[in-house]
Design a binder for these strands. Sequence first.
RNA 1: GCCCGAGUGGCGCAAUGGCAGCGCACCCGAUUUGUAAUCGGGUGGUUGGUGGGUUCGAAUCCCCCCUCGGGCUCCA
Length: 599
Amino acid sequence: MCGLFIPRHFSLRKVGMVTMRKKLSQEERQALERLRHSAAHVMADAVLTLFPEAKLTIGPPTEEGFYYDFDVPRPFAPEDLARIEEVMRQRVTADLLFVRREVSREEALRLFAGNPYKVELIREVPEGEAISTYTHGSFTDLCRGPHVESTGRIKAFKLLSAAGAYWRGDERNPMLQRIYGTAFEAQDDLDQYLQRLEEAQRRDHRKLGRELDLFSIHDEVGPGLVIWHPKGATIRSLMEEVWRAEHRRRGYQLVYTPHVGRARLWATSGHLDFYSENMFPAMELEGAQYYAKPMNCPFHIMYYQSAMRSYRELPLRVGELGTVYRYERGGVLHGLMRVRGFTQDDAHIFCRPDQVEEEVLGVLDLTVHLLGLFGFREFEVRLSTRPAKHVGEPGQWKMAEDSLRHALEGRGLQYEVDEGGGAFYGPKIDLDIRDAVGRAWQCTTVQFDFNEPQRFALTYQGPDGRLHQPYMVHRAILGALERFLGVLIEHYAGAFPVWLAPVQAVVIPIADRHNEYANSVEQTLKDRGLRAEVDDRSERMQAKIRAAQLQKVPYMLVVGDREAANGAVAVRLRSGEDLGALPLAQVVQRIVDEVQARG
RNA sequence: GCCCGAGUGGCGCAAUGGCAGCGCACCCGAUUUGUAAUCGGGUGGUUGGUGGGUUCGAAUCCCCCCUCGGGCUCCA
């Protein structure tokens, strides 16, 4: 079965987090981790002070800060965080030393005898590895360290939130209470981080989606199912247009396939065996069962199989903006980012062994190009290789992995390797984009599939006259249009570049007597293919400008007596810049040029 | 799914056991305005549920369900 698996406990925060803009050196990162880990200890100290019955579990530093999980009788309330923070400040002011002590396994077990979590951890420490505790003031915790010298070092910190979390992330385990916080070397860094958090909230696509009238989600329809409003649909269809054009240019065959298919198909593909918990339940029709498609691959395979294939036809690149439906558990749905019905910019490449590398390279070229069009130039790339449990031959895997590696290197992309992190059916490349706030989002995935060609017994006739099995590469570049648009909204904070803006220009008549001229301006713009509107409400010009600003319309064209007399428009940009009165023809050309340059 | 929190006109909020209210949006009227909100009037909610309970009385307290929000291994 083909790809786009998402881990069960995929956390949006994990990929969508607000990271530091500047790259830290190895030493700087370790120093920061030490500071945050120490802050976690001070927090645990404070929690024990206020809630003596709390049991400590784990409290690591994270990329954004730190957390500590506690076993407590009742969950923490927001007021508790303030009190905990208060006690933490006292500890920081007291400037207590962190003291390391190595202990024997027996002593450690004795020290933490009342705490089953710590006991479990101690038992897991490998034989021969030192077990240590760290103490500051009257607080001692089992800890590998290292820590800062003293609590006085922890000046810039803040507790952020409390939430439930399972012991070791496993829902079969007891639920603990987690407190998140963050700490930085300098107050300045902390302030900047908090500002970025606010900025991220300001850009929240759910908020902007409503304010800019882009989409809505309704109880009546169902959670995770999106209604695109005209303005959101405009952006989406523009995305689709460039996508299609770019794919045709690169030799993709574009198809349309149904949204449902018979159970037999999904049995053959393996989805019923391995993916059914993510599928909508079956519908019954004329005694046969049908499923909404969670993936497009079986349909693309049907196209492949609709004729005898020759080696001369390969590579066959079959693409589709294919809408799929997946059951996502209630708690993980999130605006456009995580939905139950979404459209993948999907394609499957069927090719010969000697074509594999070039095909992967082609996909990466297309990826860099397409993402670049939408303003993304920073990527994080991960290559995932063969896991212990897998299908296919070692030779196939090696060839596939090599081709992925070579393509990445050929394209000059830096990447990390996740050894054994591939799917059971093939190795893959995942690519995250970084948005304007510095957050990473997973979009692109390129996955080999050694499973389905076999299950469907795909063949092509080679020059030797015999039948061979093609390689199959599954790939999505934007990922899901819904998520990509969500990312795009936040990336641009709703102020889309002119070529994507749902309304590119609003014509603002100053008084009713200018409406006629305003309408003619609008028509001129529309005749040149631009998306324009007239605000002919009986409002003051200031109010119309405000409305257009809030809608983040790139061009505001004010027309009054002077402009009407001269065939001109007074141009205001959404930046607030006033270009003054210009001949209409000149302004139209400017906007058209900007659209053409995809500015 | 699990923990915590929240659901009040289209949107943002108020009312904490005693008459459901405000702002924006929308509609009507007046106004005709030169770069981020003109004035006045009006329509609109059986408070997520054609759920259950407590009470003389429920937006408010309790239970169930639904939806949304923050989280749910970056292992001492």
